[in-house]
Design a protein around this nucleic acid. Structure first.
Lengths: 292, 292
DNA sequence: GGTGTCCTATACGAATATGCATAGATACTA
DNA sequence: TAGTATCTATGCATATTCGTATAGGACACC
């Protein structure tokens, strides 16, 4: 008969790769997790990990056990989600994940209004451009630009956000405004570095664009935007965001650019949770109000 | 983040129906399990059980959580089986379950020889006529008279044990021996009470037999055998067992009776475990030697 | 109606696990 | 080659959990 807490530590160490990181994720400490692993190894009679300078690596004997431990973990997460879904109170935390651009430029007023309406609902915002795992409940609600494919997730399309070509007034004063799309070749265009979704979007709209188009490249969207506002070049931005900024002007509005869908995603187990549902409804209507 | 040990206690209480029984199965104590349940209820924010005089009954809110907890339990058991299957030492316990008749009259010399050969292998024998669950590892090896249908179980047929009609010498001296099958109607025949498999066996061999045939009935096989030996009546017994006993004589050997298959069953995860494999091989050959 | 048996809840001392602080060891870097 | 940033292992005081013993309540049986 094995202690399930030890198996939980085992799985955490497998996933984390080290005692320290596993302890942090578990809300425990490194000595405790280390003792758990040692205790489990004593109970099983063989070592589970090779202690290495960079962390712990599972031994071959431990590999077949990982599947079962993960099934335990998945079931525990499913249980936790069902518990959260049963919570009918309009009190407690709701965790939202959104891209940094959405979080910085769209969410604040919507969240402020929500805080005013429901002061008992605490809001946690995870502003990151990497997709979080809603199945593991990294967040309750996700605002995403890509259509989620995982089943068990329910999605609601808020709107399609149009993109536009913008430049700061200072840049236009210095370099002038392009009269047609091809003129951009003679301008400093700010664009993405490794993320190629915008380039693919251009291709879909009939414009052939390569990475060399952009003499100023970064994948940090807020940084790109500030570069644009500072007059570093011509760039692309979401129309509802950029049009609010008096520093920048829209260029070539007749050019058709791809639109970015904005999805609101949550786990189906949480759909009927009153608190999370309320936040989701507020986000959807609030964002649509600002984007519409 | 929930403590997995609490979930284990939750599942145990669901299955046991009471804190006391759950604690016994967990190898813990009733106060500890009770505290676990209370702690879990506090963490979840709603009650999981209704405390009743006869035990604890899950609340409606707890019902959907049972599935996930059971999935955790199944995964934990699978993990434990894999661990046991990896144990290559010829040291440690092996748990055998067998019918009481087999355990009493066939196993002892076989086990004695095994103990002599491998003194480091400890043998636990569960002599019971109810089928144990090998998936939950109630036993490592089962000796059964019925063909197991659960998949994940591997089975080996040791032999078909022939049945014969027997009576004690004292009974024959008093009542005489029957000359043909129909004479049994005028004898005291010892037979089964509620277990009808023998009756169905007779029917399959062309003999019409009803429960009223047996004026002396019980479902306790060892007791039936001792009644037979004491001269209480004519009965049926496994030929290899009964022929060893000088107190009894075989009657009507020409009558065809159903044969009882003897299966050796174990979980496939344990098939490659050296220790259990060794015991299984010894049991199979030893039993075949005595039954051959 | 008494009695025995099952159950859960609680008190308290003891065993146990935890967290902090720190030491030791290894790889990467300048 | 020294410095730095990881990581794991250990000592120790403390906080937590656990088990024993016991009380109290409901039910079945005689």
């Amino acid at each position: 008969m094995l202690d399930w807490s030890l198996l939980r530590s085992f799985l955490a160490v497998v996933d984390a790769g080290s005692l320290s990181v596993a302890a942090e994720r578990l809300g425990s400490t490194q000595p405790t997790v280390g003792r758990h692993i040692r205790e489990l190894e004593q109970a099983l009679g063989f070592p589970l990990f090779r202690r290495q300078p960079r962390g712990l690596e599972p031994t071959p004997a431990a590999l077949p056990l990982i599947d079962d431990a993960r099934r335990m973990g998945d079931a525990a997460e499913a249980l936790a989600r069902k518990v959260a879904g049963q919570d009918e109170r309009l009190t407690g935390p709701v965790r939202i994940t959104a891209s940094r651009m959405v979080a910085l430029h769209l969410l604040p007023p919507v969240i402020a209004a929500l805080r005013h309406d429901q002061p008992d609902i605490a809001i946690e915002i995870d502003a990151t451009d990497v997709t979080q795992n809603l199945l593991r409940r990294d967040a309750d609600i996700a605002l995403r630009m890509v259509d989620p494919t995982q089943n068990q997730l329910v999605r609601r399309k808020i709107t399609d956000i149009p993109l536009g070509i913008y430049a700061a007034r200072s840049y236009i004063a210095r370099r002038g405004a392009p009269a047609k799309l091809d003129d951009l070749l003679h301008h400093d265009v700010i664009g993405f570095d490794r993320q190629e979704d915008l380039i693919r979007g251009f291709a879909a709209m009939g414009h052939t664009v390569t990475r060399d188009w952009f003499p100023l490249r970064s994948d940090d969207h807020p940084l790109l935007w500030e570069l644009l506002r500072a007059g570093a070049g011509i760039g692309f931005a979401q129309v509802p965001i950029a049009d609010r900024d008096p520093e920048v002007l829209r260029l070539l509005p007749e050019v058709a650019l791809p639109k970015m869908p904005l999805w609101l995603v949550m786990h189906e187990d949480l759909r009927h949770n009153r608190r999370i549902r309320h936040v989701a409804d507020h986000l959807a209507s609030g964002l649509l109000g600002r984007l519409g």
